[in-house]
Design a protein around this nucleic acid. Structure first.
Lengths: 344, 344
DNA sequence: ATATTTAACGTAAACGCTTACGTAAAGCAA
DNA sequence: TTGCTTTACGTAAGCGTTTACGTTAAATAT
């Protein structure tokens, strides 16, 4: 592989001039610059990011972290896969690259001791997912490493967060239900401590409040299909008149739907269900799930952009960006009050 | 951050000794080695992988490549997400890290011009997925960069390939169907050019041949749910007596199943269906899909191991490793000939 | 005892870049 | 013309390691 020195020798100029020409910095005449660029492309010269990194003490590497899930592979959740893809695309036009790491228990406790960040000396990190404890984040912040969060949110507005517009999306979904004539609506949520859950519930509640309705919420400690199923039985026992369920994510919605079907109800004629996220399964379910689509790739791109901005300008004031979402109307919602058969 | 020189100065020894002690190489007395190790851990010294990389001309980075899919995000396919996870886990105990990149059209045509591999000078690459053209792979091979394939297979046995035991798995699945009494079995396949498809079909065929049965195959140009649906109509028109379908992957199986249900058939009493892969959706479908589980994480781990071996010993002879698979018996298969109601 | 091997350590170069500084020539003003 | 500023370039140090080679002292052999 060609190196700078080779070009310099062949052209009888100094390394410095070559470097300057290549990075188009002042201090080289146009004539010389041309010759250098010419020769460089003939030799297919490509700078060594390693060498450059050593002198500039940058690695041009950014780390993408997801928390290790007990049992299952976190990457099997396509949600983060898509975010990662967005990150990667956004970085493709820059000098940066993404390397992935999963946060083990140990890494969460002593994040700065994490070999990955010490050895590799990445320039910045992206933390994905709501299940990264805020203590971990604070430790990282204090260590001074540039940081951005996606699908997580810290009250301390000291860190850049990229999220979907949870409140707005939920509001949209609830309005949809209300427009269909539903009045007995119940929400299904995971841990209230996860910001996105809280915001989505708030959005549902705001829409109902506008119609002077109150919103019962049943909380579960996880947001899986199974917890959706369990929550349904609790729900139907305590709120038997329910005609519509709005869940805090698709998994819970699907779980509840399945439980309802086993309970002998037909979705959507007996019960309408909306989810949130638009995971692939939502479209494949029978009936297809009405939900709020969150643009995962775009979130990835946004978080990458934001981290880059932070790298260029370390004192940048942190913000929270909320990417907008849309209602995807499918087959799991219908008019209330057996309107499916037509009310006249 | 502490560097070698700092330790050396504090202990009044040379950089060389410190380096030797740290990498436990000979040339340092035990006494000195102890003092150095001691001080290093006090200072929380961690070597700079960048600096080390520069002198050893290694980056300790390996690239994980998936092909850019038109339209959809490739990472939304949890299949590769899990493989990636396996790779990462296997690498976690080494000095290596995974950096991800998606192969764009351009990168496929001129892979060695790909900025990622030139700038970043990764030590090796993993190519994932059957849709990477063999010309690309050959180009890469000739350039001399260590390479390993996963979920792809080259006839040229010049490159390490990690695959699931496609033939064996398919054989298992077909035996399962035969044991249930099915005799009219049809296979659903994607492009024959994809090695895994061909092998799976071969496995199905072998099992049937043992019973002196022949196996009609209907081919589609993709392996998606939609192509499964389409293939079903063709299939049922040409082979109306079919009692069981074995598909080349879960997506096609699910598609066919859905089409069959719309066609008024009940799965599994009218028609048994088996898939291949065990994607998450297989378990969530109604009825749950009987399929062959391929251990994706393990495949990731294997490919990483193999690449590492190749890095340590560049003249290693390439092999193909087939990780073994298992039959996951679920609800989409039952005895043939309305045996569901019991035959006596 | 001396000669020879072995081990412990230091010196310094190298990896491929960037950049602070120095020098000489060119440009401009008076 | 002289003096001053600007520009074009070269020199060399530095980033944090590893390692070939040299030196000295200790261990072993004769």
């Amino acid at each position: 592989m060609a190196v700078i020195e080779q070009i310099a020798k062949e052209l009888n100029v100094s390394n410095a001039s070559v470097s300057r020409a290549l990075n188009d910095r002042p201090g080289v005449s146009d004539a010389l610059r041309q010759r250098i660029l010419q020769r460089a492309s003939e030799l297919k010269y490509t700078p060594s990011i390693t060498a450059r990194g050593l002198v500039k003490s940058q690695t041009f590497g950014i780390g993408f972290f997801v928390r290790e899930k007990p049992g299952i592979s976190m990457h099997s959740d396509p949600f983060y896969g898509e975010i990662l893809h967005g990150v990667e695309q956004a970085l493709a036009t820059t000098d940066y690259h993404v390397t992935v790491a999963t946060l083990t228990r140990d890494a969460i406790l002593e994040p700065m001791q994490f070999r990955f960040v010490r050895e590799r000396r990445i320039d910045g990190m992206i933390l994905a997912g709501p299940d990264i404890p805020s203590e971990t984040i604070m430790t990282l912040l204090q260590s001074g490493i540039p940081l951005a969060l996606v699908d997580n949110q810290l009250d301390y507005s000291r860190v850049n967060c990229i999220n979907s517009d949870d409140e707005g999306g939920a509001y949209l979904a609830a309005r949809h239900l209300l427009a269909l004539g539903h009045r007995k609506i119940v929400a299904l949520s995971g841990p209230e401590a996860w910001a996105s859950n809280a915001r989505r519930v708030a959005g549902y509640r705001r829409a109902l409040a506008e119609c002077e309705l109150s919103l019962p919420v049943v909380y579960a400690d996880r947001t899986t299909i199974e917890s959706g199923e369990k929550s349904y039985s609790y729900l139907i026992e305590h709120y038997p008149e329910t005609t519509a369920i709005c869940a805090v994510n698709d998994a819970m919605a699907l779980g509840a739907m399945r439980a309802a079907q086993e309970d002998g109800k037909t979705v959507p004629s007996d019960l309408s269900v909306v989810g949130f996220d638009d995971i692939p399964l939502a479209r494949l379910n029978e009936p297809q799930l009405t939900t709020i689509r969150v643009p995962k790739m775009q979130m990835g791109a946004e978080v990458a952009q934001r981290l880059l901005a932070l790298l260029y300008q370390p004192d940048l004031f942190p913000v929270e960006v909320q990417v907008s979402v849309e209602l995807i109307q499918r087959a799991s919602t219908a008019k209330a009050g057996r309107a499916g058969q037509g009310e006249r």
